[in-house]
Simulated scan of single mutants.
Amino acid sequence: MLIEIGVFAGGLLLLVLGADAFVRGAGGMALRFGISPFVVGLTLVGFGTSVPEMAVNMTAVLDGRTDLAVGNIVGSNIANVGLILGSAALVAPLTVQMRMLRVEMPLLLLSCALLWLLALNGWLGRFDGLLLLAGFVVLMGLIASQARSEPEAVQEELGHSATARGGVVINGTRIVLGFAGLLGGAHLMVDSAVDLARLWGIGELVIGLTIVAIGTSLPELAASLVAAWRGDVDIAVGNVVGSCLFNLLLILGASAALRPLPIESSMLWVEIPLMTAFALAIYPLARGDLTLGRRQGLVLLAAFAAFMGYELQGLY
């Protein structure tokens, strides 16, 4: 068991390092080919922290581990709100912009409802996956249009986030090495997670909902904690909500388009409703002064701990 845990941790480290190299290389290459820093920065901010989930899900789907793939996405979204947003709120009070409550949050809740409706027949088929991907295209168009209406200082900040040193050779090397790290890390994580599930006597769905989901959410956790520490509270909240939308529409959509995903009944009546409930909880917790403080952060962390306890009760 200790060996498998070590392999999982090594795979996770390789996955995170590979994701960082790949994103930096892709951003630098895009700039070298004349794409505007604003567009590159907007894409990197939205997609960068979701690369580990994408790598793990594509690997799991290709290996036929569809339960693990579905569990990873739903579990990651629960971890995003409960663990990451809760932890960031302990570092510094998080301001929730009214626009987020009126636009991004309804879009997230709509995506949760769409997933539930599509999965009612017990499957996410290829057409369902394409429908989710179409929703992602619409989302990106909306984000781009909104971002261009932001103040010039915000657009400059997005452009600054796209800066990457090096020419075509250096950035090409980053892409190749990063992609190799993503593939290797994802395979190590998936294989060791399956072995741990067998050793612990739990299903692959549960292992995906718990340790795999937490592992692939670590980049979001690091980004949100650093943003909260620096006082960039808008980034901390926006990073979580944006990642949840990317997970549901892009990653789960691409997974289902690649291979139809069976949906267990417990997902329909327990985990997907819980994922929606975690997202809904932001509304009452942020009411009044539109701030998630330390008390609200503790509530989210306690709810996440209860979720983990429920999922892992078979280990006791």
Results as ranks from 00 to 15, higher is better:
residue 1 M to E: 04
residue 1 M to N: 01
residue 1 M to Y: 06
residue 2 L to E: 09
residue 3 I to F: 11
residue 6 G to P: 05
residue 12 L to N: 10
residue 13 L to Y: 12
residue 35 I to W: 09
residue 35 I to H: 04
residue 43 T to A: 15
residue 44 L to F: 01
residue 44 L to N: 07
residue 45 V to T: 10
residue 47 F to I: 15
residue 49 T to D: 05
residue 49 T to E: 05
residue 50 S to E: 03
residue 54 M to G: 00
residue 55 A to P: 09
residue 55 A to S: 07
residue 60 A to F: 01
residue 62 L to P: 02
residue 66 T to L: 14
residue 66 T to V: 14
residue 67 D to S: 08
residue 67 D to W: 00
residue 71 G to S: 10
residue 71 G to N: 08
residue 73 I to Y: 02
residue 84 I to A: 07
residue 84 I to P: 15
residue 87 S to T: 08
residue 89 A to S: 13
residue 94 L to Q: 07
residue 95 T to R: 13
residue 98 M to V: 08
residue 100 M to I: 11
residue 102 R to I: 00
residue 102 R to V: 00
residue 104 E to P: 01
residue 105 M to W: 02
residue 108 L to F: 03
residue 113 A to I: 05
residue 115 L to F: 09
residue 115 L to D: 05
residue 115 L to K: 04
residue 115 L to S: 04
residue 119 A to I: 05
residue 124 L to F: 07
residue 126 R to I: 12
residue 127 F to N: 12
residue 127 F to A: 15
residue 129 G to H: 02
residue 130 L to G: 11
residue 131 L to G: 04
residue 133 L to K: 01
residue 136 F to R: 08
residue 137 V to K: 02
residue 139 L to N: 10
residue 141 G to T: 04
residue 141 G to K: 01
residue 143 I to R: 14
residue 144 A to L: 07
residue 146 Q to I: 03
residue 152 E to D: 07
residue 155 Q to E: 05
residue 156 E to D: 13
residue 162 A to Q: 09
residue 165 R to M: 14
residue 168 V to C: 14
residue 168 V to R: 13
residue 170 I to P: 08
residue 174 R to Q: 14
residue 174 R to Y: 13
residue 179 F to K: 01
residue 180 A to I: 15
residue 184 G to W: 06
residue 188 L to S: 11
residue 188 L to P: 09
residue 193 A to M: 11
residue 196 L to W: 04
residue 201 G to P: 09
residue 204 E to N: 15
residue 206 V to S: 08
residue 214 I to N: 01
residue 216 T to M: 03
residue 217 S to R: 00
residue 217 S to T: 13
residue 219 P to Q: 05
residue 221 L to M: 09
residue 222 A to Y: 02
residue 222 A to I: 13
residue 225 L to P: 01
residue 225 L to I: 08
residue 229 W to L: 07
residue 229 W to V: 12
residue 232 D to I: 04
residue 232 D to N: 15
residue 232 D to K: 15
residue 236 A to P: 09
residue 239 N to Y: 05
residue 243 S to G: 08
residue 244 C to R: 02
residue 246 F to E: 11
residue 248 L to M: 04
residue 251 I to Q: 04
residue 251 I to K: 02
residue 252 L to A: 00
residue 266 S to W: 02
residue 268 L to E: 00
residue 274 L to C: 07
residue 277 A to M: 02
residue 278 F to V: 09
residue 281 A to F: 13
residue 282 I to A: 09
residue 285 L to N: 06
residue 285 L to R: 01
residue 288 G to S: 04
residue 288 G to Q: 03
residue 294 R to T: 08
residue 294 R to K: 06
residue 297 G to F: 05
residue 297 G to Q: 12
residue 298 L to S: 10
residue 299 V to G: 03
residue 300 L to D: 10
residue 307 F to W: 13
residue 308 M to A: 06
residue 309 G to H: 10
residue 309 G to L: 11
residue 315 L to M: 11
